[in-house]
Design a protein around this nucleic acid. Structure first.
Length: 875
RNA sequence: UGAGGUAUAGCUCAGUGGUAAGAGCGUCACGCUUACAUCGUGAAAGUCAUAGGUUCGAAUCCUAUUACCUCAACCA
């Protein structure tokens, strides 16, 4: 036969992806069918595919392909995110390597570089998704900085401002001195750092007394504007109302009292630095303290740092410790571990900093989004456990700092006409702004209007994603948004539940008064075998494309899905991809077998084939129902495993073995025809998981027109399930296992046919007798009424089976085996009877439970009787 | 520190108060019975984290403990 025995994925995958693209199967336009829509979580435009993406997008592709096969109008919108901080950081680094300093460039020049970068690398990750088989509607590819997308963002900003929800505030924010921008709380990662707690002596003004404070940040003493003690702390009564002198800079600061200070911690004296610590800021506001900001924007010291001006904060820390020590102001140093905020993107240590920022009021906006998930179930989270986390966040939501001191992103549409902080208007364009300013009675030239230099947080564009990709913000009544929105499923990681998912829900209710999606499938994090999170810095993430090369996209998809229950972290192990690859090979060879058969029209279909096919049809239907159930709960691993077992065990190991003609013999036409139909049905249900392999076999089975491609085939129709047939087969398969077991134990080669007889105490159906004969390689199979002496035996329930053997049977071994079985069954019986003799059980347990226990009792009794009679005949 | 989660076979995980606990992988034994050795057949493997409790009955519900995970906040 001309088909190779090993399935080779590489050429097949390219071929079919091209074919699908050529025939435009991925493209969707609104029509009369029911839509099924997913918007991709847009990966960073400059990113490369990592394991998280692979998992995520495989799941989405499975859902989309399944919907497509089920006759829905499936639309998967792909795209990328401009990822302001991440991208800007990369562009800055690249410029730096070329000897260009970002600060020497104008906004326009910098943006030109950023766009070049985007155009150069922007397509990479999308091309990688294609390799994975993702059936996105590539004609719809969006980028969060596309003109229309940006317009939507600006429109929303202006709208929210006009609704009074956006305001400007002087707040303590997380400052990233590396990127020179603010970060949202969510972008700050607290990392445990080994540091020191320095005990520093302050002189009390007008006396020889000193007080000692403990700090991890001695360099901030230049910003001290008070010392705080707990009013109840009896040790420091003598300090009340006095002033202290800050070492080195000699500034006189008040000693204030506040119960905020923990008597137990450190020395009980706290230095208050309102400009550089959130809690100190609160304290400072309460006690009307001066605010002294000692840092430049790159976290070097400014003129308040005196002789340290211009030096970096960590350099200063070392130097100042030395200086304090020399001045005998350093009492002691202790090792101290605390968690320090670092930037998710640049890893720089965050500096709390006071600055003017734009904020969005969240409390009222969050309300409908909270109800949608927790009250009326409009949006469902899978797994459900994330609802608690969601509630916690939404109920304690803080205003969202939406401004970033970056260039790459949508520029905030606030236009200034004067130097005052409030001298601005908010408008979609500078011309609108000009008009508004004039309406205020202020005359100014258009060119003298100055736009706010900050850009918007990236998430401020992606929170509109499910609407803006269909132009739903700019044109709320357009046909597409009406057809595709709300979308159906969203698949993403739990790490961006708040960054993104919650905010999309908020935006959805605010702008469409509708949920953005019905179901949110939260995948687990991909970890390595040592349970470490896969990350670039650890270098433990396998190369995605290399994996596809080694195992095929289908193999990798299977590998990822096999162990990824929703919400559980996924311990990634390449062996799983190997399993996927082996599965592909198994199916390939099943196909080779079927394809290799010659047909003989004159042969009548054997009964064994007829009944086996009927059985498989029922088994198939039952499995489909199971799969359906798994999908409804987003249990994709289980759905795939059910499919896997159906194909490997039921189809390949049982059905094909039953219908397989003898070596080099032809098969009857009817069986072949039926089995091909079944094979095709199997390909359909497997297609979402393994799109390439299935399309390849589908097209190999016969010549198909583009309209007949598997990707758009019809899902197998639902038929009634014959449960009887399934249980009869199960019984027969136990009999076959029994035969195999005996063959194994007694070293009887399969090719030697054996005689076989049965005492049918259970009165089981004989439908599968021919199947048993074939798979057991029986030369005869008869029913008898009494035990056969001198035969090997085994039992299924109370049925007894005999394989007469020439020569001696090891009676002792048989007796031992039977006794063991008897002991076990009697033990089992005792436990069942104990239950049944308990009146409280019989009275309280549901009827079915009692009935099933009674059945167990009867079965056990029957089996015991069989065993006893066998033993008797042996002795 | 707080909130949430998890603990079942060597590994990854199912398990809906009622089966003397299941799957896949791995392990071990045997086998090339010509679709597939990327395979087949068979087997072994469990104190359901620990201690209590509720119940006729608990892997499942409750309480406490321990360990780990995630998120949030951190006392300078």
């Amino acid at each position: 036969m001309g088909i190779p025995s090993k399935y080779s994925a590489e050429s097949v995958e390219t071929k079919w992806y091209d074919y699908w693209m050529t025939h435009n199967y991925f493209h969707s336009t609104p029509d009369e069918r029911e839509p099924y829509t997913i918007v991709i979580p847009p990966p960073n435009v400059t990113g490369v595919l990592h394991m998280g993406h692979m998992l995520n997008n495989t799941i989405q592709d499975v859902l989309i392909r399944r919907a497509r096969l089920k006759g829905k109008n499936a639309c998967w919108v792909p795209g990328t995110d401009h990822a302001s901080i991440a991208t800007e950081a990369k562009v800055v680094a690249k410029l730096k390597a070329q000897g260009i300093d970002k600060n020497d460039l104008s906004r326009e020049e910098f943006l030109k570089h950023a766009w070049e970068w985007t155009e150069e690398y922007g397509g990479v990750i999308l091309d990688q998704l294609k390799k994975l088989g993702c059936s996105c509607d590539w004609d719809r590819t969006k980028f969060t900085m596309d003109d229309d997308m940006s317009e939507a963002v600006i429109k929303v900003f202006v709208d929210l401002y006009n609704k009074g929800l956006i305001y400007r505030g002087y707040r303590m924010v997380n400052w990233d001195p590396e990127a020179k921008t603010t970060l949202s709380d969510e972008e700050v990662i607290h990392v445990e750092k080994q540091g020191f707690l320095y005990y520093i002596k302050y002189q009390v003004e007008g006396s020889d007394d000193t007080l000692v404070i403990a700090t991890t940040r001695p360099e901030t003493i230049f910003g001290d504007t008070a010392i705080c003690i707990n009013p109840n702390d009896e040790r420091f009564v003598h300090l009340k109302g006095k002033n202290a002198i800050v070492p080195i800079c000699g500034r006189v600061i008040p000693i204030i009292e506040d119960e905020y200070v923990d008597v137990e911690f450190g020395t009980g004296c706290l230095k208050v630095t309102p400009a550089h610590d959130e809690n100190d800021k609160v304290l400072g506001d309460k006690h009307h303290l001066e605010v002294v900001d000692i840092f430049n924007e790159d976290a070097s010291l400014n003129s308040f740092g005196m002789h340290y001006e211009g030096q970096d904060r960590f350099v200063v820390r070392k130097a100042i410790v030395k200086e304090l020590k020399e001045a005998n102001k350093l009492v002691k140093t202790e090792n101290y571990t605390n968690k320090v905020g670092t930037s998710e993107r640049t890893k720089a240590i965050i500096e709390p900093r006071l600055s003017d920022q734009w904020f969005l009021k969240m409390e009222d906006l969050a309300k409908p989004a909270l109800d949608a998930v927790l009250t009326n179930g409009d949006v469902k989270l899978f797994p459900k456990k994330f609802e608690n986390t969601y509630r916690h966040w939404m109920e304690n939501i803080r205003d969202w700092n939406i401004s970033r001191q970056l260039l790459w992103g949508q520029q905030i549409p606030a236009y200034y006409y004067g130097d005052g902080k409030e001298d601005f208007v908010v408008a979609e364009t500078i011309d609108d702004a000009h008009t508004l300013i004039k309406e205020k009675g202020i005359s100014i030239e258009r060119d003298d209007i100055r736009q706010d230099s900050d850009a918007l947080d990236t998430w401020f564009s992606s929170w509109l994603w499910p609407m803006s990709v269909f132009d739903g913000i700019r044109n709320p009544e357009n046909e597409e948004i009406k057809y595709y929105y709300p979308t159906n499923d969203l698949v993403t990681g739990p790490d961006i539940l708040f960054f993104w998912v919650a905010r999309m829900i908020i935006a959805g209710y605010e702008y469409k008064d509708q949920r953005p999606f019905e179901n949110v499938y939260l995948t687990g994090l991909v970890r390595d075998k040592q349970r470490r999170k896969m990350s670039k810095s650890l270098g433990n993430s396998p190369d995605a494309l290399k994996l596809i090369e080694d195992y095929g996209a289908d193999g990798v998809r299977v590998g990822l899905l096999l162990s990824s229950a929703a919400g559980n972290d996924l311990m990634f192990d390449e062996d799983l991809c190997q399993q996927g690859k082996q599965f592909a090979n198994k199916i390939w060879n099943a196909f080779r077998l079927v394809k290799g058969w010659d047909v003989d029209d004159t042969i009548v279909q054997p009964n064994s084939s007829k009944i086996a096919i009927e059985w498989f049809e029922s088994k198939f239907q039952k499995t489909i129902a199971d799969i359906e159930d798994h999908f409804s709960k987003y249990r994709l691993s289980d759905a795939l495993m059910a499919t896997y077992k159906l194909i490997w065990d039921d189809f390949a190991s049982w059905l094909l073995e039953i219908i397989k003609p003898a070596y080099q013999q032809p098969i009857d036409a009817k069986t072949l025809e039926q089995v091909i139909v079944l094979f095709e049905d199997i390909l359909k249900i497997l297609h979402p998981f393994m799109p390439f392999l299935t399309e390849e076999i589908w097209q190999y089975i016969e010549e198909r027109s583009p309209e007949e491609a598997l990707i758009i085939a019809e899902w197998p129709e639902t038929k009634t399930i014959n449960e009887n047939l399934i249980s009869e087969f199960d019984f027969a398969s136990e009999v076959i296992s029994g035969i195999r077991n005996i063959r194994k134990q007694k070293n009887i080669a399969f090719k030697d046919a054996i005689a076989f007889s049965a005492v049918n105490n259970e009165n089981v159906s004989t439908s599968f007798d021919e199947v048993i004969s074939k798979l057991g390689n029986l030369e005869s199979f008869e029913y008898i009424n009494e035990s056969v002496e001198g035969a090997l035996t085994f039992r299924v329930k109370s049925n007894e089976y005999f394989i007469p053997m020439e020569g001696s049977i090891d009676v002792e071994a048989e007796v031992k085996k039977l006794t063991e079985e008897l002991n076990y069954t009697e033990g089992f019986l005792t436990s069942v009877q104990k239950k049944l003799s308990n009146e409280r059980f019989v009275n309280n347990a549901p009827e079915q439970v009692v009935a099933s226990e009674k059945k167990k009792e009867a079965d056990a009794l029957a089996k015991i009787e069989t065993l006893k009679s066998s033993l008797a005949s042996l002795q």
